[in-house]
């Protein structure tokens, strides 16, 4: 007589395959389905990340973008402003001609011709195919030549031992670092940076980020609406960060 309490071979195979799928196959499918770029796919130039800042929407006294960057990348300082890292900072400016006062965030401008990468002796400063300029923390020797070369003072040198690092932004004493358009988020499928998200959450929408290759991206729409201008255009560095409302 057949014993119902025992698994048949068919049941065993079906259940095993189901369990196997649940553990190994489905998690592989889900991130692939939602990510704009699978992690195992090489970065290529079909995506061109860019950012625009509408300075008319940027609010004086607001530091949401700076705070978000600090949290996202674990940039907790030592209360030593001259040596603490700053990936993004706020500036207040007065136009010499019109006397208009404006405020804006400054960060790595992600140049297409980045002087920091040109001068780096080991190639630790590099530009990805999708336009993100960043530092390889394993090959940076801490010579700071890139900081001498950067026209925007966008880079910081890690001056002391770090304790509260976050896993998605490894940093190291003795290396140079700067804004990397939240590369870790982007590579995990997000299409927004921490600063843009914070700016949106505040309801200001001064910062817009996105893919220049996608005509419907937020950054393209923002630039179409109000053309952006590059800082120090005389240097012909073709930055991916532009400013509208200047």
């Amino acid at each position: 007589m057949k014993n119902n309490s025992l698994l048949t071979r068919r049941d065993f195979l079906v259940k095993s395959f189901t369990a196997f799928s649940a553990i190994y196959i489905i998690p592989d499918i889900i991130p692939h389905a939602s990510a704009s770029k699978p992690l195992d796919k090489e970065v290529d130039s079909s995506t061109r990340w860019a950012m625009n800042v509408d300075i008319d929407k940027c609010v004086e006294g607001c530091s949401a973008c700076v705070d978000a960057c600090v949290d996202e990348n674990g940039l907790y300082g030592f209360d030593r402003p001259e040596t603490d890292s700053q990936w993004i900072r706020k500036l207040t400016l007065k136009d010499i001609k019109t006397e208009k006062i404006s405020t804006l965030p400054m960060m790595c401008q992600h140049c297409e011709n980045p002087p920091c990468c040109d001068v780096c002796p080991t190639g630790a400063s590099f530009r990805r195919e999708d336009g993100i300029v960043m530092v390889n923390q394993h090959t940076c020797i801490g010579c700071r030549y890139c900081m001498m070369a950067c026209p925007f003072k966008a880079r910081s040198f890690v001056h002391e031992n770090l304790t509260e690092q976050v896993t998605n932004a490894p940093r190291g004493k003795g290396c140079v670092e700067s804004c990397n358009f939240c590369a870790n988020r982007i590579d995990h499928g997000a299409d927004t940076t921490a600063c843009e998200e914070a700016c949106m959450n505040e309801g200001h929408q001064a910062i817009t980020f996105g893919d220049l290759s996608n005509p419907n991206s937020r950054v393209n729409k923002a630039i179409d609406n109000k053309p952006g201008r590059r800082l120090r255009a005389d240097l012909a560095l073709k930055q991916r960060v532009t400013y509208s409302g200047f």
């Binding site: 990468c117 040109d118 001068v119 780096c120 002796p121 080991t122 190639g123 090959t139 940076c140 020797i141 801490g142 010579c143 700071r144 030549y145 040198f157 890690v158 190291g172 004493k173 003795g174 290396c175 140079v176």
Partner: peptide
């Protein structure tokens, strides 16, 4: 240097666009 222990990197990995290299 910030990382003098990485001298070996400077001696083996070069970016020839850099005058430093």
């Amino acid at each position: 240097l910030g990382r003098p222990n990485r001298l070996i990197v400077a001696m083996t990995v070069y970016n020839f666009k850099s005058i430093f290299a």
